[in-house]
Design a binder for these strands. Sequence first.
DNA 1: CCCTCAGGTTAACGACCGCTAACGTCGCTG
DNA 2: CAGCGACGTTAGCGGTCGTTAACCTGAGGG
Lengths: 198, 198
Amino acid sequence: MASRTDAPTRREQILKEAARLFAERGFHGVGVDEIGAAVGISGPGLYRHFPGKDAMLAELLVGISGQLLTGARRRLAEADGTPASRVLDSLIEGHIDFALDDRPLITLHDRELDRLRDSDRKLVRQLQRQYVELWVQVVRETYPGLTEPAARSAVHSVFGLLNSTPHLGRAGTLPGRGTTAALLHRMARGAFEAAGRE
Amino acid sequence: MASRTDAPTRREQILKEAARLFAERGFHGVGVDEIGAAVGISGPGLYRHFPGKDAMLAELLVGISGQLLTGARRRLAEADGTPASRVLDSLIEGHIDFALDDRPLITLHDRELDRLRDSDRKLVRQLQRQYVELWVQVVRETYPGLTEPAARSAVHSVFGLLNSTPHLGRAGTLPGRGTTAALLHRMARGAFEAAGRE
DNA sequence: CCCTCAGGTTAACGACCGCTAACGTCGCTG
DNA sequence: CAGCGACGTTAGCGGTCGTTAACCTGAGGG
């Protein structure tokens, strides 16, 4: 098994490039030849690593959803006992890290879900739902004024806010990662707080 | 020219159904036969109304961007003289109306832009940029603590928040249009305010 | 009454795409 | 060094897609 510091395996290269291309041009807009070319092999060579094009998308989306949920659970466990407001900050921080570091995946996450086989789609949706539920719980502890449906809507909306990173400066034109992260964090908290004000 | 109260023309039917299908399955994921079937004609009959599939997408995206910009300019003119904070409320209200009433278009707006011919894409981007600039100006008047880049990022992020409506309750499970609109409005203001707090 | 034309129809073409088949070439290992 | 498995290659098949061609029909007007 490859450790995390090894050079990326061919499989990992393929997944990374496929994510970028799918995000740029859409799942149906990218051919297997392009994905192959992006990693220096061509076309059908991909089938030594994946059973098909669908499988690459499936692995990407399941991976994203799983990572988000796992990370959130870890943060929840680590912050056990601290006030809910701190836990919420940790969740926001984790989501922002992800949105800033893996923009193509964030894009895919809510865009290409319907291109999956039924079983994979159900799995991804289940992971997503658990992630949302976890947020809803923490948000309601932090802002008790929120009803459950309102909290759910608020969480989805804040995800929209945090996931807007692909639309911020196309290149490195945005004012530094730390500054952007802090701004997003403040805005997310402000949005939740405003949602909690009756 | 058809007045606004006439029965929808065939062209309008086609655009509406194409928008829905493109939003559901992506531009490349929808065939012309499906679009035709959705309006009761089949396949190549569409070419009596549009020169090609691309033209439908182009007309949709240019239309959206133009409507958003025109609406915002009208609201700005109508609110001339009132405090900037009120103008911002009006902009937010307009954007929310659009996001709630035309969800498929909102989805397309930031998803299929790259599928356009160069000239159309440039036009759409120019309209979008003007819309953003208009918001940035009003936001900075309302919250003078914001630098220009921060205001721009904040505006994009709030668009992400407001455009999250397609992810809220798939059917009529969300708690009434008015309630949702009010929640989104509060959250948007809260996010801007938090962005403005240094 | 015929002509026109808007708005359809079906058939078919060429391009492309996902995938398979058949084959080649290393590097390792008994 | 023989054999083998991992990892490529190119050729090509079958299906789909956007688009065009050719044809049909019904309403309106001189």
